[in-house]
Amino acid sequence: MSAPTDLNIDHVANLARLALTPEEKAKFAQQVGDVIAYIEQLKQVDVTGVEPTAHAFPVSNVWADDVARPGLSVEDALRNAPAQRDHMIVVPKVVE
């Protein structure tokens, strides 16, 4: 199947914060293009006056009382951090 879509793989990968190799770009553009060509069939459906469904059973206005509950300790919360120091997550320098 060809991919007659206007998928701009560089633009989309940039939006998704995803570094791709040249090989990945070529392969994914083709594969995702095939899927987009397939899902174009939805354009045949008459959706005039049809409301969109975000959830099958919408539950709205779920409130919780604003009271403090026990939570994770700092140690537990940081247990999976790739780098930490003094109860903080270490990241590369953001400002010069």
Partner: peptide, 24 residues
């Protein structure tokens, strides 16, 4: 990549919103 594409500016109505309607 596909999900970012269908949500991206210019494609949202054609893909994501339409898909939600067909979901209905």
């Amino acid at each position: 990549i596909l999900g970012t594409y269908v949500l991206s500016s210019g494609y949202y109505d054609a893909f994501y919103l339409r898909a939600q309607k067909v979901r209905t």
